[in-house]
Simulated scan of single mutants.
Amino acid sequence: MELYFMGTNAGVPSLERNVTSVALRLLDERRSFWLFDCGEGTQHQILRSPLKLSKLEYIFITHLHGDHLFGLPGLISSRAYQGGDTPLTIFGPVGLKKYITTVLEISESRINYKMDIVEHDGGTVFEDDSFRVESALLDHRIPSYGYRVMEKDQPGKLDIALLKQYGISPGPLYGKLKRGESVQAPNERTVTAAEVLGESKKGRIVTILGDTRPCPTALELATDANVLVHESTFLHELADIAHKYHHSTAKQAAETAKKARVKELFLTHFSSRYKNNEQMLQIQHEAEETFPGAKLALEHVLYPIERPLNS
């Protein structure tokens, strides 16, 4: 599991940074990647990345401002030309379906793969055997959502040597034990999962927020996350402007991370007024005063999301 940022600027692209988009790469977990927001130019950024559109499985849109979704029509249209023929599901706020279908209809774009658009107003938006994704409304000028991606705990390794002693061979019984069920050995002895399974691997939590002022919902979504991706549009000296335009400062992002007890904080969605390295380091240092180790999200850098050592 890794994060890969393809856009970290707020509002408009600059020579230094593209507008918002971040991928959650899940090659080991499900041989795919998920995309969070799709600002203009995202498909160009993917071409410069280790990602392949054919592996794109889900897109999660935080809100309907242009710098977060103007890249969708081009990416959707181009996906098939890059080998993408598997289903694609796009999640986002009410209005997303109208936007996508209108653009595709007017441009007479033809999509030769199954595409679903799922509009939501928060709650559990996705769940399968491996992951659950929850969403909640943040505090922005228009409905803006954060996403909490929760990897489910994985069962521990089977004690193969002990299973051999019990006379249990690889096959369906292994699967039952992995699922936590008890089985019967050839000698009619009942073998429980607890006897032969090692300690389970605790799932990781990744929280990716849309544009927002500091708010209780952001804190709830981020609680105990392994990674928090939080907008940091301004330095705190511009806190009044941040509040007026429903954004956050680097200090406020760090305060949320600290209160939520997150393990790692990535700052993103920077105002285009911050251009040079010195200004960007100011943003990082401001956050580090409250949350040591806070990182600036850099585009085209792969950030592994490690499991805790005790999991």
Rank of each mutant, 00 (worst) to 15 (best):
M150G: 01
Q284F: 08
Q252L: 08
K176W: 05
G123R: 06
P214W: 06
I117K: 10
T223K: 11
I208T: 01
Y303V: 02
V301P: 00
E108S: 11
K98V: 13
V19W: 00
K114W: 07
L96I: 14
Y174G: 01
L137I: 12
L238R: 13
P50S: 06
K244M: 09
S14K: 14
D37Y: 00
Y99H: 14
R307D: 00
L281N: 15
A218V: 07
D240W: 04
R31L: 09
Q284H: 01
I160L: 07
Y147L: 09
F36T: 07
Y58V: 08
C215T: 07
N226C: 05
T89S: 15
G83N: 15
S107V: 10
R141I: 06
F36R: 02
H246A: 08
S271G: 03
Y303T: 06
L51D: 10
T124D: 04
L163T: 01
T102F: 07
L177G: 02
L69Q: 14
V118G: 04
K295N: 06
T207F: 05
Y99C: 10
G39I: 12
L47N: 09
P93H: 14
V133H: 02
E2T: 11
A161E: 09
G7M: 03
D211H: 06
C38S: 13
G7L: 04
A294Q: 01
K244T: 08
K259S: 13
G198Y: 11
V206P: 00
Q279F: 01
N112A: 07
L47Y: 09
S49N: 07
L209H: 04
H68M: 12
T42H: 00
G180H: 10
D139P: 08
D28M: 08
V22S: 03
F91K: 05
A136T: 11
M6I: 15
I305Q: 02
I59W: 00
E108R: 14
E16G: 05
K178E: 10
M280H: 11
T20F: 03
T207Y: 07
L163P: 01
G210T: 01
H300Q: 13
A185Q: 09
T233H: 01
D67C: 06
L72I: 14
L238A: 11
P216T: 06
L88Y: 03
N187L: 14
E40H: 09
A242T: 03
S77C: 10
P308T: 10
I160A: 02
E119Y: 04
A136W: 02
E289L: 05
E286L: 02
V206K: 06
P172C: 06
L137H: 10
R25L: 15
F5N: 00
L35R: 05
E306F: 09
I59F: 01
L75I: 14
K251E: 11
A250M: 04
F291K: 02
P308I: 10
L163C: 03
L26A: 10
K263E: 12
G146H: 12
K275T: 15
E231I: 00
L27I: 05
T8Y: 01
D211L: 08
E108D: 10
T190K: 13
Y174D: 00
K97P: 12
N277A: 13
K52H: 13
V183D: 10
A253L: 09
A253V: 08
P87A: 13
I100K: 01
V262C: 12
K176V: 05
S49V: 07
F131C: 00
P172S: 12
G203K: 07
K258Q: 14
R204F: 06
T217F: 03
Q284G: 03
E40L: 11
G171S: 08
L47W: 07
G84H: 11
E188V: 02
Q282W: 13
